[in-house]
Design a binder for these strands. Structure first.
Lengths: 166, 166
DNA sequence: CGCATATAAATTGCGTACAATATCATTGCA
DNA sequence: TGCAATGATATTGTACGCAATTTATATGCG
């Protein structure tokens, strides 16, 4: 019996993975948001950046990344495209030239009114309680996953530390 | 009062969105899988393809896409990389030259034994019941989302149909 | 002050994702 | 048979997403 079993307790069955439905749901949701957001001139990650800025204008790239769990390698080009589209401004912090401050332009602020219909259209027909339940469950997982990678990652399964850090 | 309120019933608050935790969880999970899968020479989507092929070898590109909710624009280059890595074979179906059949090479089949430890390492410390609960909830949403786009999408919020389909 | 260290973004290289289009094979039907 | 319509992949172009590296600034410490 060298070949592993394909029975229902096989840990490699696609339908047993938690990661897969999350992955599929994210892809399907992105496709669902796509046509609606394109009417606002936004992509899905750009929409998330706008949500953060509409809550609190004038943030550093790092702060945006901390909120959205994205790093500068993703955010820098994305923000440049949003700047080119006239939605945000990017300028070096005068008090700390390492930082870049991102803020809304008037056009970016005004876009908010049109964006108000987005959640409305998307929720369309879904029972609110079920969505709220899903949101809470997945949010807890996000908190857990974010805690799991303190420094970077690569320490989620290492048995012994190599260099003394005590 | 032209400016919309930012109170807790503001529908645009990031923490009220269902889409965001799904997005964040997927990104964090991909980062978590990354280092583990790279030991197997796989990326995360490639791992998913392998899961499908380990369950059922010899599938068309379309069948893989239907299972993973991905289209040929994503799968074709991905499968070519996996072919170059020696994990799968791609060959035209002799009975229907439009189709491309994807099958495992011996190396691809053998990789399964090493992959068995992946779910083990990842689940590490998580209560199984909680994961199972999350999996079921998100899976239901995937089913819903997949149903919502029958032909393509673009019909999830149209108020009146233009051409009679009755 | 002078320099090692740390921090914040930007850059590079690679691998997805997806819409739109193109290519080629198959099928249906006059 | 011939050809229009359909179907299955492939290609193109744009936009992420991330690891690793680089650049520039700030800070700490002798």
């Amino acid at each position: 019996m060298l070949v592993a079993d394909r029975s229902e307790d096989d840990p490699l069955l696609l339908d047993r993975q938690v990661c897969f439905p999350l992955y599929a749901a994210t892809n399907l949701l992105t496709r669902l948001y796509g046509p609606i957001l394109s009417g606002l001139g936004l992509t899905y990650p750009q929409y998330l950046v706008m949500l953060v800025l509409w809550e609190e204008d004038l943030q550093t790239v790092g702060a945006l990344g901390a909120r959205l769990y994205l790093d500068s390698g993703t955010l820098t080009p994305l923000l440049k495209r949003m700047e080119k589209a006239g939605l945000v401004r990017r300028e070096r912090d005068q008090n700390d030239e390492r930082r870049v401050l991102v803020s809304l332009t008037p056009a970016g602020r005004n876009l908010r009114a049109r964006a108000l219909q987005v959640p409305e259209v998307l929720a369309n027909g879904y029972p609110a309680g079920e969505l709220e339940n899903l949101r809470l469950t997945v949010s807890e997982m996000v908190t857990e996953l974010a805690r799991h990678r303190v420094g970077k990652l690569s320490d989620q399964a290492l048995p012994a530390d190599k260099a003394g850090k005590a």
